[in-house]
């Protein structure tokens, strides 16, 4: 079995929905995905791109119209029980947990669904509660938990049976910055343990920080797939580079408007942010034109958010 087969693999995944008027709508159209062990892949896309439908198929909640899914080497349709044991998923949000049960009771119940029981289940639940910083709230009803605590409990639930593949749907949605950072650190650690993790998110920073690869979905199809760095570099040809220059005397010279390939500029005191077609050429021109007058010059490709917005607009 190859490493890709041990992880998550979707091939030619399609899902159609029939409308009341007999029309057929393709929500997902020919998606191919591979998440190898130890790899984290983020799926980005605007609302209606087909992310949720894809996640529901990958987790076995929805059957594909065509195509195949293997999780941990098991076919999600023909070997669903085995595949389900290899897959942990968290749909996140405020729901999906029993508010009248305690955190510990929730984990015990969900653990039993995966064949865990007895001391092993109790030990595993206690350890996970500790790992997600909820040990001190283990005996409190989940209804009293904040959204961040529920998100962490969702993650603990997904990890109960120690799945090789983890699918997380917007794990940090609605969290405050501190909780979101804590969640990102936890997810990063899980990847380091050799799991295959598929993450959907609207948070570009999260995607860039955590992902080995980023998949951008639009209209039910994968529009592009690459590392965050490569996506940003590739988009620089279209969007240009951002050059930040700080001048020693606190004044931005007027001649700067003659910088080659300049697309726009934004001044703030003695610093200026230029958008240029060719970052290297512009930096060379600035250093040559204003020798000794600059304190710092940096060039960066467009941000992932700019790339995302550009691709969405282009499609």
């Amino acid at each position: 079995m190859s490493s890709a087969e041990k992880g998550l693999r979707a091939t030619g995944l399609c899902r159609e929905f029939a409308g009341r008027d007999g029309s057929v709508r393709k929500a997902v159209d020919g998606v191919d995905l591979v998440v190898r062990p130890g790899e984290l892949v983020s799926v980005l896309g605007p609302n209606g791109a087909g992310k949720t439908t894809t996640v529901r198929m990958l987790t076995g909640l929805l059957l594909p119209t065509s195509g195949s899914i293997t999780v941990g080497g098991y076919d999600m349709v023909r070997q669903r029980r085995r595949a389900a044991l290899a897959c942990g998923f968290s749909l996140g949000g405020d729901t999906g947990l029993y508010p009248r049960l305690t955190a510990q009771q929730n984990l015990s119940f969900f653990g039993m669904m995966y064949g865990l029981r007895g001391d092993r289940l109790e030990r595993r639940a206690a350890r996970l509660l500790e790992e997600v910083d909820l040990a001190d709230r283990a005996k409190d009803a989940v209804g009293s938990f904040s959204r961040g605590m529920k998100q962490r409990l969702h993650l603990a639930r997904a990890l109960l049976h120690d799945p090789a593949v983890l699918i997380l749907d917007e794990p940090s949605a609605g969290l405050d910055p501190q909780s979101a950072a804590s969640m990102r650190a936890l997810v990063a650690r899980l990847t380091g343990e050799g799991r295959s993790i598929l993450l959907t998110t609207h948070d570009m920073r999260e995607a860039e920080e955590l992902s080995d690869r980023i998949v951008l979905m639009m209209g039910g199809r994968i529009r592009t797939e690459s590392t965050a760095a490569d996506l940003r570099l590739a988009a620089a040809d279209r969007l240009g580079h951002v050059v930040n220059v700080a001048f020693a005397d606190g004044r931005v010279p007027a001649e700067l408007e003659h910088c080659p390939g300049i697309l726009g500029e934004e001044r703030d005191g003695g610093t200026v942010t230029l958008r240029v077609t060719d970052g290297a050429a512009s930096v060379e021109w600035i250093l040559k034109t204003f020798p000794g007058r600059t304190t710092s010059v940096s060039v960066t490709p467009p941000t992932l958010e700019e790339v995302f917005l550009d691709l969405v607009a282009a499609s």
Binding site: T59, G60, L61, R80, R81, R82, A84, L85, C87, F89, L91, G93, T95, G96, L97, Y98, P99, F110, M113, Y114, G115, R157
Partner: peptide
């Protein structure tokens, strides 16, 4: 249904 807890059961082996 309100708590959307049945999806966890639907995705579980049983």
């Amino acid at each position: 249904k309100q708590w959307k807890t049945l999806y966890a059961a639907l995705g579980s082996p049983g």
